[in-house]
Design a protein around this nucleic acid. Structure first.
Lengths: 335, 335
DNA sequence: TTGTAGGCGTTATCAT
DNA sequence: ATGATAACGCCTACAA
C-alpha cells in the first residue's frame, strides 16, 4: 500500500480534498467540526504531507547544494557540518557533490542543480575552473550561487573567504618576529586564486621587512606529496633556510614528514607556521603555530549569505571576509 | 521567465506535448522529421527536462540519504566521499544529515526521508539510538535502510561494519606479542554496539593470552576529552601500565596528548595501538601502529548494498564485514 | 463554509 | 504516426 494522501482522508470523511487541505493548515474559514475530524483522522492514519508534491506544486525543491572539489579531512568536513546545520534550521536539505577537481564534472553538477530546481548552491571551485559561465547560468535562472574558499576574484558572484593575503602576511611576519628569515613557501595549485593571494601576502610581508622573496624556494604543488622531494633537496642545498610557511594542512603534513628526517630542529633552528582549520597543528610534534581559518565559520557565513540571497534580500554582489587569528604554539617558540 | 518546458516546444511546433515527449526519448513510432524538428528546437531553446516533475510523476526522487551522528574529521569524511561517488555513478544525489547524537533528531530526519520520498538511506546511529522503530517504518514503506559503523546488533536491518571484536583482538594481540602486557583500553560511548564489540575483543585477547582485563583501566568516554584526567591519574598511580589500546582516532589523539606529558616513552616502555582510518597515526610522533578501518571502503560497500536493495535484488537481511589489517608503525617497535 | 476546476511538467494509455 | 486524456499529490482562485 502506498502512503496516505489527502484524497484518502477526503474519501473517508466524504468531503472534498481541498477542504482537507485547508483543514490541515488551519485555514480560517473551515468548520470547527470538519477541522477536528480531519485532523484526527490524519493523525490516526499517520498522514504526513508529501513534500515532493508540495514542492513541485510550488516550483521549489527545499534543497540547496554544496559543491566541493573533493572531500579532504581538514577543512571541508567543518564546512559540510555548518552548511547542513544552517540548512536544516531553515527547513532545507543539503545535497553534497564532489567535482573531483574537474571542470567538466563541475558543469554537469551545475546542470543537475538546475534540473532538480535546487534553490541555492554553495561552491568551492575545482582547480580547473577559471570561467564561471556554468554558474552564471544558475544565477540567471534565479538560483543564487555563493562561492567560498576556492573562489575566483573579480567575478560577479558573491563570495565568502578569509583575507588570504592578510593571513599569509600574519604568518610570515610572525616568523620574522621570531627571527626566522629565510623562508620556504608551500602553496596549493597555482591556478587557485587563494594560492595566488596567499603567495602575494607571503611576498608582501617579505617586502615590508625589507627582505627578498626567494621564488625558487616557493612551491605550488599539484598534490601535497609533490613537494616532498623538492623540499628534501632544498633543505639539503641551502643550510641557511630556517623557516617554512605552508598555506594548508595538507602541505604542512607533508612538510613535517620531511622535517622529521632532517637535522634541523623545530623550533630551535627552524620555524614553522601554517594556515589551518586548527586540528592538525595540535597533533604534530612540536605543535605548530597557525593562522586559524575556521571551516565551520566560512561554511556558516556562506550558507547564511546564500539564504539571504534566496529570500531576495539581495545585495546580489557581496564579499564576506571571515576574520583569522594567530595561534602561537611550539613551532615558533624559540628562546 | 521560467524554464523551457515540453509544452513550450509543443506550442512552437504546433504539435502535442506528448509527441514532443516521445520524440525527445526516441520513441520508435515518431516521424523522422518531427523527431528532428523537436530535437533541434529543444537544443536551441536549451531545453532540459525538469527532473522534479519526472520524479514526481514516477513517485521517485533520485535521492538517497546519509545520516551521521555528526561529522568528525577522521572517519565520516571518507564515508561521505564514497557514498557521493557511488550515488552519482548510479544517477542519484546524496543528502547529508547530522543527528547530532540525538535520537529525537534522528527520528525527525527519518520522517523527512519519508516525506521527501528518499529512495534509500544509510545510517550511522546516534549514541542514543537503542530502538530502530523509526527506520523500520522506512523499510515498511519500501525505503531500504542500511546501517553502517555505528550499528545495532541483532536488528532486522542490513548492516556494514568491520569485524569489531576481531579488530580489537588483533590490536591487543599485537601489543602482547611485542611484550606490552598491562594495557589501558579506551572506548567510545558505552551504549554503542561497536564500543561493546571492541571491548569484547579487547577482553578476548586478554583471556586467550591468559591475562586478566583490568576493568578499572578501561574507559568508555562520552567525549574523547573526558578520558584525559583519568588517564593522567591512572598512569601516575600504576607504573606497571605499559600499553594502550584506543578504539578510535579521537581517543588516540587525546591519549597522545597525555603521553606527551608523562615520562613513559613510546615505544621503549609503552606500546600504543589504535583502530584508525589511517591518517592520524602518521601525523603523530612516534607514528602509531593501527588496525586499518577504511571509511571509504565501509561507505562504498554500504552504498553498494543499498543500491542492491533499492533494485529489489533483496537479500533483505544481510551483514557485510569489511576486512581490516594491521599496519605496524613505530609505537610498538621496541627493541 | 465547502465544492469545483485547473495546473505544476511529465508520461502512460488510450483512441484516432 | 500523432492527439487526447488522465494522473502523480497538492494547492488556490473562483464559484456556489
Amino acid at each position: 500500500m502506498g502512503r496516505i494522501t489527502i484524497k484518502d482522508i477526503a474519501r473517508a470523511l466524504d468531503i472534498h480534498p481541498s477542504t482537507v487541505s485547508r483543514a490541515l493548515k488551519d485555514h480560517p474559514d473551515v468548520g470547527m467540526e470538519t477541522k477536528a475530524a480531519v485532523k484526527q483522522l490524519a493523525l490516526e492514519l499517520g498522514y504526513s504531507p508529501n513534500q515532493q508534491a508540495i514542492h513541485f506544486r510550488h516550483r521549489k525543491s527545499g534543497l540547496i547544494g554544496l559543491i566541493l572539489p573533493s572531500i579532504n579531512m581538514f577543512f571541508f568536513p567543518s564546512v559540510i557540518q555548518a552548511a547542513e546545520e544552517e540548512a536544516l534550521r531553515k527547513g532545507y536539505k543539503l545535497l553534497v557533490f564532489q567535482s573531483g577537481e574537474s571542470l567538466e564534472k563541475e558543469k554537469q553538477i551545475a546542470q543537475l542543480c538546475l534540473d532538480f530546481r535546487l534553490e541555492g548552491v554553495l561552491v568551492s571551485l575545482s582547480k580547473e575552473s577559471q570561467d564561471l559561465g556554468h554558474f552564471e547560468e544558475l544565477r540567471e535562472r534565479d538560483i543564487p550561487v555563493v562561492l567560498f574558499d576556492k573562489v575566483l576574484q573579480g567575478e560577479q558572484l558573491p563570495l565568502v573567504r578569509i583575507g588570504d593575503a592578510r593571513a599569509a602576511r600574519l604568518a610570515v611576519r610572525h616568523l620574522f618576529s621570531r627571527g626566522y628569515q629565510h623562508l620556504i613557501g608551500l602553496f596549493d595549485n597555482v591556478n587557485l586564486d587563494i594560492s595566488q593571494q596567499r603567495y602575494y601576502g607571503f611576498k608582501q610581508a617579505h617586502e615590508q621587512a625589507g627582505l627578498q622573496v626567494r621564488n625558487d624556494w616557493c612551491f605550488f604543488a599539484e598534490k601535497a606529496v609533490d613537494c616532498h622531494k623538492p623540499l628534501v633537496q632544498l633543505l639539503d642545498e641551502h643550510p641557511e633556510i630556517d623557516g617554512l610557511f605552508a598555506m594548508s594542512d595538507e602541505l604542512l603534513a607533508e612538510a613535517m614528514r620531511v622535517m622529521d628526517k632532517t637535522d634541523r630542529s623545530i623550533p630551535e633552528t627552524f620555524g614553522v607556521v601554517v594556515i589551518s582549520d586548527g586540528r592538525l597543528p595540535y597533533y604534530l610534534q612540536p605543535k605548530v603555530t597557525y593562522i586559524h581559518h575556521s571551516g565551520y565559520e566560512v561554511g556558516r557565513q556562506a550558507t547564511a549569505l546564500l539564504f539571504t540571497l534566496m529570500k531576495g534580500g539581495t545585495p546580489e554582489r557581496s564579499t564576506i571576509e571571515v576574520p583569522v587569528s594567530l595561534v602561537s604554539l611550539e613551532s615558533t617558540r624559540r628562546k
